[in-house]
Design a protein around this nucleic acid. Sequence first.
DNA 1: CCCGAGCTGAACCGTGCGGTTCAAAAGAAC
DNA 2: GTTCTTTTGAACCGCACGGTTCAGCTCGGG
Lengths: 219, 219
Amino acid sequence: MNGARETGRRSGTSRGRIDKRRSILAAAFRIFARDGYGQSCVREIAAEAGVAKPTVYNHLGDKETLFREAMQEAVERTTADALTAFEGLREPGDGTAAALEEAGHRLLRGHCGAESRALRGLLHAEAGHFPDLVEELQRNGARRVHDALADRLARLALGGRLDISDPDRAAEQFLALLTGPMELRSGLGTREVPDAELHSVARAATDTFLSAYAAPATA
Amino acid sequence: MNGARETGRRSGTSRGRIDKRRSILAAAFRIFARDGYGQSCVREIAAEAGVAKPTVYNHLGDKETLFREAMQEAVERTTADALTAFEGLREPGDGTAAALEEAGHRLLRGHCGAESRALRGLLHAEAGHFPDLVEELQRNGARRVHDALADRLARLALGGRLDISDPDRAAEQFLALLTGPMELRSGLGTREVPDAELHSVARAATDTFLSAYAAPATA
DNA sequence: CCCGAGCTGAACCGTGCGGTTCAAAAGAAC
DNA sequence: GTTCTTTTGAACCGCACGGTTCAGCTCGGG
């Protein structure tokens, strides 16, 4: 319905005028994350956004599209953040192991963050009702993280620092070793996990990962 | 309210008389799994169970307790099933690697089964609303699976077939290597995963696991 | 200065929910 | 057969929801 409607408006604060849309989507995600899709009501989302209810329906016609849009935005944010975790893997001067552990820890920090947890929870919850959304969000989220890591690992293998024949498999396993243990440890996001524990998991993951993929000769 | 009410009744078929409760709980789980907690209505659960709505409220007073009870029962079923996957690890005659891969594959089969997927999805979805339920269900489910595997691994280590100093860590990582990759591959349960892929993941997990924990001398 | 687009708040509609009530029916126990 | 418990269907209550309407206000552009 809208789409090409809001063109070059800039008013900065988002308080007085435009950027309603952003604030609505942010509020929507917050409420959806707190109450779930079914239990959330648009009334409350509008209130959280500091906006009248019809305004919500003006910008996004439907509760469903509101949900989809809010999820898209959230996955964009968290993915961008997660991708920064792999920066240290471009040129690991201080040793491959340390760089992997550092990257793993940074990834875990994001993974256990509030927004990321809420996003996974919501997606998991409504996966059955919006299969296409799952598909798209995984393509724009987890898939990109996986690919980025696989790229880095392939580079490291090419540089002789790792012995990897299948970078996709290696990336998949490293990610599994990192995030897999958090499900139980964090009680599906119920319990807060202390940073020391994150370090410990990242360390263990790196150790096991390197047992399988360390280069035969470190030169 | 009830509890010690239904004593030694047995009528067998569950069609004519008692066992309403079981059938209600089973139907409840089916509906909850299909629609989510918020979107499910007790009316439909009663219909699915072939029972009048007041009967549901007679047996389980509340929609919430209905949910909790149904989840408890489901976790009991799936956990019992998962635990059987580790039977082959008691006396792995045909080699530790093959036994691990077999156990991993059987675990994955269950993990990707409809009931198990639905259970995880529901729990993930409502984790925020029922933190105590998460705690209890993990204790009765995932935790028991983890412990059972850790026990088997410790035995194998004691028998000199594995080199494991921390069985809990080893179990955690093996489970992570198995189930971690399925999240993306199955699209959170949206896509069906062919059995060949399950075998492949189990194989890869076993390989990497053994790289880290294989005994130095196989005798 | 006015104009028009967008925002507001409040009321409104139809619907479906959780949960209850009640009178009638169906079994089980004796 | 009689009695006591349980189940049944249907109606009912209060409520909150998604979504719409509308008259009035605000504010930027001219």
